[in-house]
C-alpha cells in the first residue's frame, strides 16, 4: 500500500470516529471495561499460576499406616503404591523420621519438644504419596485407601478443594470476560455500521469509479482497531498502577513474602500490556469485520 493511501485511510478512520463521537466513546468505554476485567483476570491467572504450582507440590498425601504394620510390610506397601497408576512418587517415612521432619519444618519451635523418638513417639508410620498431577489425586486416594494396612489418608482433600475453588474462580472471570468482549465487539460493530451508513454515497461513488474493495474497507478496519486500541490504554495504565501498589504493599510488609509470592512488576507489565493491547485491537477489528460483512455491500 502506498504511503499516501495509508495516510488517507487513517484520516478517514479518524473522521469516522469524530463524526460518531458519542457512539465511539461508548464503544471505547465498553472495551475499557471489558479489558479492565480481563486484566484483573490476567493478574489473577498469572499469580494463581504460581500459587497452583505450589499447591500442586503440596498435593502429595500422607498415607497413615496401622500401628501393627511392620517395617518390612511398610516397605513392601510402598513399592506396591509406587506401582499404582497415576502415582508419581511414594516414600516411606517412619515414626522417627517423622519427628525429624516435623522439627525441621517447624524450625525446632518450643512445642516440638513433646515429640520424642522411640517408645513415646506418638506419630504414626506413613507413606508420602505424590500423584502424577492434581486432577488424579482423588483416584489415587481411593486406590490407596483400599490397601491392607492403611489406616487412612490425610492432607490431599484440602489442597484439592483449594485448587478447585481457585480454578472455578478463574473460569467465572473468564466466562464473564468473554461475554463482555462479545458485547464490546457488538458496540464497535454498531459504530462502524453508523459510519458505513453515513458514508453510503461516498462508498457508492468509490465503487463506481473503480476503487478496490480493500481500499473501501481499510478505513473501517482502522476505525475499529483504533477504538480497541484507545480502549486498551486506560485499563493498562490503571491496572499497572494498582499492581505496582500491591507488589509494594506485600513485599514491603512482614516476611510473609513466601505466603503470597507475586509475579514481579516488570513481568506483569509485559503480560498485561501485551495481552490487553492484543485483545483490545482484536475486539475492535472483529467488530469492524462484523459490520463490514453485513453492511458494506461491495
Amino acid at each position: 500500500m502506498k504511503i499516501d493511501t495509508l495516510r488517507r485511510h487513517f484520516r478517514e478512520a479518524y473522521r469516522g470516529i469524530v463524526k460518531n463521537s458519542w457512539m465511539s466513546f461508548a464503544a471505547v468505554g465498553a472495551v475499557a471495561v471489558t479489558l479492565m476485567i480481563f486484566g484483573v483476570f490476567v493478574i489473577f491467572a498469572v499469580n494463581l499460576g504460581s500459587i497452583t504450582d505450589e499447591v500442586g507440590d503440596n498435593v502429595s498425601m500422607n498415607v497413615v499406616l496401622k500401628e501393627e504394620v511392620t517395617k518390612e510390610q511398610a516397605t513392601a506397601l510402598t513399592t506396591k503404591i509406587k506401582g499404582l497408576p497415576n502415582v508419581n512418587e511414594a516414600r516411606f517415612i517412619s515414626k522417627d523420621e517423622g519427628v525429624d521432619e516435623v522439627k525441621k519444618n517447624l524450625k525446632d519451635a518450643d512445642f516440638t519438644r513433646v515429640l520424642q523418638k522411640g517408645e513415646n513417639n506418638f506419630l504414626p508410620n506413613l507413606i508420602k504419596v505424590t500423584p502424577k498431577n492434581v486432577s488424579v489425586s482423588k483416584q489415587v486416594e481411593d486406590a490407596v485407601k483400599g490397601l491392607e494396612g492403611v489406616e487412612g489418608v490425610k492432607n490431599s482433600s484440602t489442597a484439592k478443594e483449594l485448587l478447585d475453588s481457585v480454578l472455578l474462580f478463574k473460569n467465572i472471570i473468564l466466562v464473564f470476560g468473554v461475554a463482555l468482549a462479545v458485547l464490546a465487539a457488538f458496540l464497535i460493530s454498531n459504530t462502524i455500521k453508523l459510519t458505513i451508513i453515513a458514508r453510503r454515497r461516498e462508498i457508492e461513488v468509490q465503487r463506481l469509479v473503480g476503487a478496490s474493495n480493500w481500499f473501501i474497507r481499510w478505513p473501517f478496519f482502522i476505525e475499529g482497531g483504533f477504538i480497541g486500541f484507545v480502549g486498551s490504554v486506560l485499563p493498562i495504565g490503571v491496572l499497572l498502577l494498582v499492581y505496582q501498589g500491591f507488589v509494594k504493599m506485600i513485599s514491603g510488609g512482614s516476611k510473609n513474602a513466601n505466603l503470597l509470592q507475586m509475579v514481579g512488576f516488570g513481568d506483569m507489565a509485559m503480560y498485561l500490556t501485551g495481552s490487553i493491547l492484543g485483545i483490545g485491537i482484536f475486539i475492535g477489528v472483529f467488530g469492524s469485520v462484523l459490520s463490514i460483512r453485513r453492511f458494506l455491500k461491495i
Partner: peptide, 11 residues
Amino acid sequence: AFALEAVEVPT
C-alpha cells in the same frame, strides 16, 4: 479529486 484518490493516484 475523490475519484483519483479512490484509485490510488499519487498525490
